[in-house]
Design a protein around this nucleic acid. Structure first.
Length: 526
RNA sequence: GCCGCGUUGGUCAAGAGGUUAAGACGCCUCCCUUUCACGGAGGAAUCACGGGUUCGAGUCCCGUACGUGGUACCA
């Protein structure tokens, strides 16, 4: 009964915000490749928006000029495109709330920061980097439990709280570099409800006076995210769990600037962790363990090093989206394979986990294998064809190519597997595993294959069943066991012990190629 | 250190006080396949620990441990 009530109350709070159009945003910083976790954040934003017929906005948070990386922004949009996550509004897609790049909104933030100072919620701070270092050093030697710039230390610092108004004005007039810091009042509790974690409460005694406006006039994330979420009418804010500790700052900012009733509902997503060891999954783990962490290849513009992406190693976007969706979420049933449409229909924020999940590349590959089977080969034939071409095989006969794909797709996990599993359909194997034949090879078998060549040269029928029949009849006539002959035949056609049914292969590559390959191997056996 | 968040097999996970504690990946065995896969049938393996509350706890409460995040004029 009590639970029912909670659910009811929760749903009401939920619906109140629903009365306006749902608007969510993904707010990446253009600092490098797009990480798995980043894509999942986009995905959850997107699914939530689409489920509620809302808008999905992409806002570029490029307020840290020192970390700006050329090409990173375009790359992010390329990744979104590949994933099929199309924004409704963005730098690229336009929209009524432009500009969507924070660097172009610079002037906007300053007035809000000034307003906060005027209202007594923020103050100017003139401390230099060295002074801040000294402060922390001092706190450390004093054995203080916190090294933060907060109510305990701010009256010892060089800021407008301690300075006389005219002193502050003098510094300002003299063009002294300054930042604006939020003034957190001690002994208050900031409660809020997270859509995933439920009720959370922070004690302001543990919250520091975060910088809102930097000396270069740019806002920090804290100010920018609040101002833009308000201006862009964001209703639900999804972000990684790493933001949870700074949530009280944002809530206070909302309270001071726009009112808590306008604040979006927060959802702090669990982290994606390293498969082994501990910690957040990083690009380095991918390099170390041999799997990608980025959605697409990221060529570092500084050192030209390419970090591998899921796309390039042969993932299907459908599989990539699928595996990300179920990393930290499930619909409560045993279903694991979901299309984007199903995800939109079934996604629910309440079913997102609280705890982080270790990334498992083996499972990730399984999703790709499943999607290769599920999708019509036409969906990815062009990509596979490109793989063949970079490996020196040009495809002229598309129908034949599709047929081969169909024949081998069951044994493919990543797209390049089509090449390793299917190249012999297009050209004779470069090497023949002779050692797999030799031990049991004898004159009788040799004779059999000579006769086989003659028989097949004369035959007019070349379907897999015809080939099998004639093969078996000839084997019987020579009192040989079919089983002892099929492996040699396979090696002759494929080069190794793998692939679809050997008679299907013979049928596919054609009579001439089949005979040529047998002759070639026979010559090697001499 | 301090603060926050978390913790069901090796991994992802279902689980809303009463279940033989689902399912998936991976691993092992067998079947199918005269190859390799797919597929099918089995198997090993789990509620971090300690206290409560309750007739009954994986589920609720407290503590501990462990993990993780934050503690920047980075996001």
């Amino acid at each position: 009964m009590e639970q029912m009530d909670n659910i009811t109350i929760f749903s009401c709070a939920y619906l109140c915000c629903m009365s306006q159009k749902v608007r969510v945003r993904f707010a990446p910083s253009p600092t490098g490749g797009l990480h798995l976790g980043g894509v999942r954040t986009v995905l959850f934003n997107y699914l939530f928006a689409k489920k509620h017929n809302g808008d999905f906005i992409v806002r570029i948070e490029d307020t840290d000029q020192s970390r700006f990386v050329t090409g990173a922004e375009a790359y992010i949009f390329d990744c979104l495109k590949w994933c099929g996550l199309t924004p409704d509004e963005s730098v690229l897609h336009g929209g009524d709330f432009a500009p969507y790049r924070q660097s172009e909104r610079k002037e906007l933030y300053k007035q809000y920061a000034e307003q906060l100072v005027k209202d007594g919620h923020a103050y100017y701070a003139f401390d230099t980097v060295a002074e801040l270092d000294n402060m922390r050093e001092l706190l450390k030697t004093k054995g203080s439990s916190s090294l933060q710039y907060d109510h305990n230390v701010r009256m010892n610092m060089n800021n407008s709280l301690r300075l006389l108004p005219q002193e502050t004005q003098q510094l300002l007039d003299a063009g002294t570099p300054y930042v604006i810091r939020i003034g957190i009042r001690p002994n208050e509790f900031i409660p809020f409800t997270d859509m995933i974690r439920g009720d959370i409460e922070f004690d302001t005694n543990n919250v520091d006076d975060k910088v809102l406006l930097k000396a270069d006039g740019m806002p920090t994330y804290h100010l920018a995210v609040v101002v833009d979420d308000f201006l862009m009418k964001i209703t639900h804010a999804f972000r990684g769990e790493e933001w949870l500790p700074s949530a009280p700052v944002h809530i206070l900012l909302w309270k001071y600037l726009f009112g808590l009733d306008k604040m979006p509902q927060w959802a702090h997503l669990p982290l994606i962790l390293k498969p082994d060891g501990n910690g957040k999954l990083s690009k380095r783990d991918g390099d170390r363990l041999g799997f990608p962490v980025y959605a697409m290849d990221w060529p570092d513009p500084v050192n030209n090093e390419i970090t591998k992406g899921f796309k390039e190693i042969g993932f299907l976007p459908e599989a990539f989206i699928n595996l990300l969706a179920v990393l930290g979420w499930n619909d409560g049933t045993a279903q694991e394979i979901f299309s984007m449409e199903e995800l939109i229909e079934k996604f629910s924020i309440e079913k997102v986990h609280k705890g982080g999940a270790k990334f498992d590349f083996e499972k990730a590959k399984w999703f790709n294998h499943e999607w290769i089977q599920k999708l019509d080969v036409n969906n990815y034939a062009a990509r596979v064809k490109a793989i063949f071409e970079t490996n020196g095989i040009t495809i002229n006969n598309n129908a034949y190519f599709l047929k081969v794909m169909e024949l081998v797709k069951g044994r493919c996990t990543l797209l390049p597997d089509f090449f390793t599993q299917g190249s012999f359909f297009f050209e004779a194997p470069a090497t023949i595993d002779i050692d797999a034949i030799k031990p049991k090879w004898d004159d009788k078998k040799n004779m059999f294959f000579m006769e086989l060549i003659k028989a097949w040269q004369l035959s007019t029928l070349w379907e897999a069943t015809d080939i099998e029949t004639s093969f078996k009849e000839l084997a019987a006539a020579n009192t040989l066991k079919t089983g002892e002959l099929m492996l040699p035949l396979r090696i002759m056609l494929v080069g190794e012990k793998f692939g679809p049914g050997v008679f299907e292969i013979a049928a596919a590559i054609g009579k001439e190629a089949t005979i040529t390959r047998i002759v070639h191997t026979l010559s090697l056996l001499q």
